[in-house]
Design a protein around this nucleic acid. Structure first.
Lengths: 214, 214
DNA sequence: CGATAATTTGACCGCTTGGTAAAACATTAC
DNA sequence: GTAATGTTTTACCAAGCGGTCAAATTATCG
């Protein structure tokens, strides 16, 4: 007799790992494009190339897929902010943070949209993560920025809103991709917009934050 | 015998106007929180305080409600950008643009989220609007900004990405409201965050764009 | 090999969904 | 008033939904 769910076994088989991977990959596609409510198990199953009951053998519920997806993505998503180094040079720290966030928007747009969908719809599944680990990390880095400002390395500014503005400007290129493309027009077929965006944003933030003599 | 749909009559009755208004108001709530696919007619009907068939007497389909909502909101949404004046002082134009966009994020977050949901999910219903009227408007204002840069009133920068960055930073406070609140914490009960954001963004953009001597 | 555990399938269930039909009810115009 | 029009309700449907079940199939291990 089969043990009810693969997940209950201690050792995971090769097949389990493969299939769960395929499911999460497919789910990322579907959830990021439709949000949690808008996504259906059938869609995910089809995208993963398996039948619905088969998919439900690996994940008991739609929520379980979503939760695991979020958990997995969240930590890598915050990686760039974690790398923010108090000892480093403020200008180059900010510059490379912007660059890394832009690279993520370019290379992992689905992950960005997954979160955007979630937060936009009230973050019903990740409120705790936002108020806990995320807030803690931001608080920590805000203190770093504040210290830089105190020591005159950058101009005085609200560190929280600085972080928000870096998040929003960079993620915009993933989350609002369709709009960005529509406005820039066809001539922007390639990914040159990311380079242009990087140039612009670095200029904006670096010059905007440079400590002023006056 | 009743004419199939109220909409077919030439003159709209008082009741029609009232009810359609109530429906659109309710739909704004529901669509902005759940996206198109995630929203249900029943939800909208309940929020509007009427039965589903009654609602469907005024709007034949879910799409029809959504379309009308988008149409109505789109024009008012772009109003601030339209107000961008080539003859005005660049600094104050940009400053007041930022301020107006922030006010809209504060006062009309549902409208912002309606669009965000739509664009995020690939803009299936408004692609034409984006590529047409929106692009045209942005192209026009980009030229204004470019002219300012040419005449040395602001520093040289990519006007499109400048506009994107103003959009994203301001709308962030509507679209990612839950996250902003979570990170800022309880002490931010009121709406002071909008004032802080305004201060920060004005500083960032004005100082970041100020024409440099070097 | 054979036994046992893991995986896959097809049939199904109860609920929700977008939408319809027709009749009951209300309003307006004359 | 009454007839025509406009509005609302009740009952309903077919498709889609998340999820279950038991049987069939396949992989694994001694």
């Amino acid at each position: 007799m089969a043990i009810p769910r693969a997940a209950k076994t201690q050792r995971r088989t090769r097949i389990q790992e493969e299939k769960e991977e395929r499911i999460l990959e497919a789910a990322l596609d579907v959830f990021s494009q439709n949000g949690f409510r808008g996504a259906t198990i059938d869609q995910i199953a089809e995208a993963a190339g398996m039948s619905k009951p088969n998919l439900l053998y690996y994940f008991r519920t739609k929520e379980a897929i979503h939760r695991q997806l979020i958990d997995r993505v969240l930590s890598t998503w915050l990686e760039p902010l974690r790398a923010f180094d108090a000892e480093g040079n403020p200008e180059s720290e900010i510059r490379s943070y912007i660059r890394r966030k832009l690279e993520m928007a370019r290379d992992f747009p689905r992950e960005s949209r997954l979160f955007a969908n979630e937060v936009l719809q009230g973050a019903p599944h990740i409120e705790d993560e936002l108020k806990g680990p995320l807030k803690a990390l931001v608080d920590e880095k805000a203190e770093v920025i504040r210290a830089w400002a105190r020591s005159g390395k950058i101009t005085k500014c609200d560190p929280y809103h600085l972080i928000f503005s870096i998040w929003s400007t960079t993620q915009h290129y993933a989350d609002f991709d369709v709009q960005v493309r529509a406005v820039l027009g066809q001539d922007y077929a390639g990914e040159g917009r990311f380079e242009d965006a990087a140039r612009f944003l670095e200029q904006l933030f670096i010059d905007g934050l440079r400590a002023r003599k006056a």
